[in-house]
Simulated scan of single mutants.
Amino acid sequence: MIELKDITKVYKTKNGELTAVQDVNLTINKGEIFGIIGYSGAGKSTLIRLLNGLEKPTSGTVNVNGQQISSISGSKLRLARQKISMIFQHFNLLWSRTVAENIAFPLEIAGVAKSERAKKVKELIDLVGLSGRENAYPSQLSGGQKQRVGIARALANNPEVLLCDEATSALDPETTDSILELLLDINKRLGLSIVLITHEMHVIQKICHRVAVMEAGRIVETGEVLRVFQNPQAEITKNFVMQVSGTKETKVSIEQVLANYPTGKIVKLTFIGNKTEQPIISQLIKQFDVEVNIVHGNISQTANGPYGTLIVQIDGENSNVVQALNLLKSNEIQTEVIEHA
């Protein structure tokens, strides 16, 4: 569906060359929701603009739906872009047009007949949950409603790929969740591929199937969201995972436990899927005669199932503690002994 091969993008500035994207190789499958996460300046916005030809790579190829976007231009590029839609952080609506007129705009440009436009606009308004707001202007809408208009407009030409450029960054948490639920519903109903860039791991956790982590123009880690959450490799990925697992806020608690129980081991447990429902702690206590003190616990839902973290202090005879840790590992629960916070 989407393939980026050996992509590098260099900008020439008055201070010299600036490499925004470097040596990126990436494949995004048909029908999946793929997240690209990174802090400001990581290169993710440049990367997404390469997907629809708004930017051309300095080297490498971009292939979308069988079209080599990196090498076509003019009418061929315009035709290809009809199947690659985009929604933006600040909505980019036409303020002098109503909701219905904003959604109809790309259909007008494509030369669709008026009666057919009206039918399509009604379908899209119903799809994004804006029935009754057809004649409202953007200034009369909430942020979430504006983004729903942007999504409906992006779907007008029946795209096969939907690009989301920080589409929820300007929204409050509750509205963000409602927009993410809408994107998930659209993905399931229409089967289109969604590429979503963000700096918030919550967004990745909520709806993405796979994720790529960007830093300094490079992709430093990629994989299924659950697996990346369970076993992040790059330091930046670990920081992002801590955003949603809550473990960043447990440092003081860990220090206190280590001070009060210096003979025990502080262990971080990471588990996914049905492992989150197992009574593993009570099993440890009963089977190995150890004391278990819970420092922090959190279970989050992802598009592929639940992901949980649990930080515990395990104390007892050393041989019993070792056996307890071995049991955890044999149950495919990732364990990490924390020597200090």
Rank of each mutant, 00 (worst) to 15 (best):
E3K: 08
E3C: 01
T8W: 07
E17H: 08
A20D: 06
I28R: 00
I36L: 15
G38K: 07
G41F: 07
S45W: 05
L47W: 05
L47M: 09
E55P: 05
K56F: 08
T61P: 01
T61S: 08
N63G: 02
G66N: 05
I72P: 00
S73F: 10
S75L: 11
K76W: 00
R78G: 00
Q82S: 11
I84D: 04
F88T: 02
E101M: 14
F105D: 03
F105C: 02
L107W: 11
R117Y: 06
E123M: 03
G132A: 04
G132L: 07
N135P: 01
N135T: 12
P138E: 06
P138R: 05
I151M: 02
A156S: 12
A156L: 03
P159C: 04
E160Q: 14
V161G: 03
L163N: 01
S169L: 05
E174I: 14
L182V: 09
L182S: 01
K188S: 10
R189Y: 06
H199W: 08
M201N: 08
R210P: 00
I219V: 14
V220N: 04
L226I: 04
V228K: 08
N231L: 15
P232N: 15
K238T: 03
N239V: 09
Q243K: 06
V244T: 07
K248V: 13
K248Y: 15
K248S: 15
E255M: 07
A259V: 00
T263A: 10
V267F: 11
I280S: 02
L284Q: 06
Q287M: 15
I294Y: 13
V295E: 04
H296S: 13
G308C: 04
L310H: 07
L310N: 06
I311A: 02
V312K: 08
Q313L: 11
G316D: 05
N318M: 09
S319F: 11
A324L: 09
S330W: 14
N331T: 07
